[in-house]
Design a protein around this nucleic acid. Structure first.
Lengths: 195, 195, 195, 195
DNA sequence: CATGAATGAGGGTTCATTCAT
DNA sequence: TATGAATGAACCCTCATTCAT
């Protein structure tokens, strides 16, 4: 009961750290159990297997992140403001738990295939926003998928550079500049609505 | 002697395909050997081990690509032209051998640590170009590393979207638009030289 | 849990027999596991690896034997009595578990290098006894190391001859004669103490 | 022709050194070939396989040594002189080529089983001498095999101590003392013949 | 709920030997 | 004769998973 959920979180936390440090294939269940303060067999009380553990770690954050982005952009009306809000949200997310972000980056290729149609992904959210922006004439770039790629690329690669030590400081400190770069890249009109 | 170099190429080709399809850890030496039409032990005459095989596959292309980028941008004088040339070069590279590109994307995190100081990387090349552009007043973005991240992000993420089927057509067909997006993102002056 | 300690003993026992029969390098872990009635992987729960298994088998007996010799000679006062006690003890040890002795003989060359300084070895014990004997004027041979070699040689080679079938009967039946030969070889005064 | 025999000797010499350094199982044919300055396949022109190579190395020296001992003791008439001659011969052999002796010591257990009845071994030679000595009343010890074991043990173990660095100097320098110890151990009458 | 011994398949690697060249 | 690429079986070891306790 009480300890049940706590143990499950212990496992997730231990697994996350180890996965990021040594890779998923490079981390054994034995190792995870040890780091979580339990034994191997006990993990299987909480997760059906290693794959499910990885998936749980991935899906929770991935979905949560999509929802967060959704909430953030809905609070804004202009394209520029929506993008800035989402970029700022991403940066906060990164600064808050870099390990989690690194994990997402690490396993995305293997997990993306398991994403069901009903699940909302960050990519979908951003693309919907941009699609609406194009329709409203606020975005110069006509190809929504390509524009989404550009926005994601700018933000993700900057985070990756930070992970590799090629960039210093927090991501949040770069949020404004990043948002501006994104807007410039896809041709967001400064005053899409206003005037 | 049977063939020598031919076998080595067989191994590399088979390994590349399998690595991309199932991941490096998900691909066994037995499997590679089978796909290459030889037996396990024979691989070890050509590569010291699995790690070396991965590294050989990675380093060759990685270095070659850096050199290619270097050559391409040197043939141009303005920032805008340099970026366009490099983006176009990247797109051609991608279209030419998508599997190889996917492999590079897949293993980069694990291999980057092994890159020696004397090796030239694509990131270094691009950053040098941008740094020079900033100095010459051709680039609005003052932080060369951040600008490099933006450029890389736009191009790489677009390629990634293509791999995942979110984008159709060749990368080369998108080269002009990509180059423009990059220039806009980092604030390249239209006429770097001119007036 | 199935058994634990019992399995560990099964492994040791099976390994010992096989090592003696086919040599350490000539015995596979699969073979040991089969003989112990378990599977390969199970061995690694009890021993870190093959080397550790060999070492465990060796060190336990080697150290135990040194202690036994130590106890035996301390119960005696004269050189002649000490040597006889130790020789008799060795013979009993041999007769009790010939396989174990053969194993010790077989692997000693490879394992001796791993013996730490704090470990007491049979050679050390005997040499200390002889050194004391020389000092006390009970031993004619002045070089303690050489005298130790002679004593060890006589006893060990006799055991070896027995193993090869060149000698019949138990070692214990030869203890008195062996002790006498040792004493003669290194010149032990018949009545070290007495008159 | 010319080079044929030379190559064969190269192989034997290289193999001997490597076998002593790393053990027979610890030495690969590839390694031997490299050390001999040829390739793997070439070894098989000179030896049917690894086993035969080991056997050739062993048998040659083993037989040669038996013959040498035979010659040496025949030149003497008394038991004491025969033993001294053989011990001296052994010491010379050891000092002359310690590597060869170590090899013999190393592989004897595995090779002894292959010794045919027609082959003369050092053990047989020594035992014959002692048997004759017993018959002639020159040796106190009545059991010829046991006496042989004692003599061999004293000499061999001393050599072993030397190999392990527990004894300094040449074996030849110890020959007289060793012969004396052997004689004492088995009760050789000082003037077996004489009077 | 937890333990940890056991499974069994598979991992990467080595190696004596063969054989086309 | 010599080469060295290839074989194929065996090597030691790891690991996700199961299950008796």
């Amino acid at each position: 009961m009480r300890s049940g959920a706590a143990t499950k979180d212990n496992i997730k936390s231990a697994a996350l750290t180890l996965f990021v440090a040594n890779g998923v294939d490079g981390t054994g269940m034995r190792e995870i159990a040890k780091a979580a303060g339990i034994t191997e067999g006990a993990i299987y009380r909480h997760f059906a297997g290693k794959d499910e553990l990885v998936w749980a770690l991935f899906a929770d954050s991935y979905v949560a992140y999509a929802e967060k982005l959704d909430t953030l952009h809905r609070a804004q009306t202009t394209m520029a403001a929506k993008i800035e809000a989402m970029v700022r949200g991403f940066c906060a997310f990164f600064d808050e738990d870099e390990t989690l972000f690194r994990f997402l980056l690490l396993v995305q290729h293997g997990q993306l295939a398991k994403v069901t149609e009903t699940m909302r992904t960050p990519v979908q959210v951003v693309e919907e926003v941009i699609k609406a922006g194009i329709k409203a004439g606020e975005v110069g770039y006509r190809d929504s998928a390509a524009a989404t790629a550009a926005v994601f690329g700018i933000v993700l690669q900057t985070a990756t550079f930070k992970i590799y030590g090629r960039l210093r400081g927090t991501m949040s400190a770069r949020a404004t500049a990043l948002a501006q770069a994104c807007q410039n890249a896809i041709g967001v009109k400064a005053n899409g609505v206003g005037s």
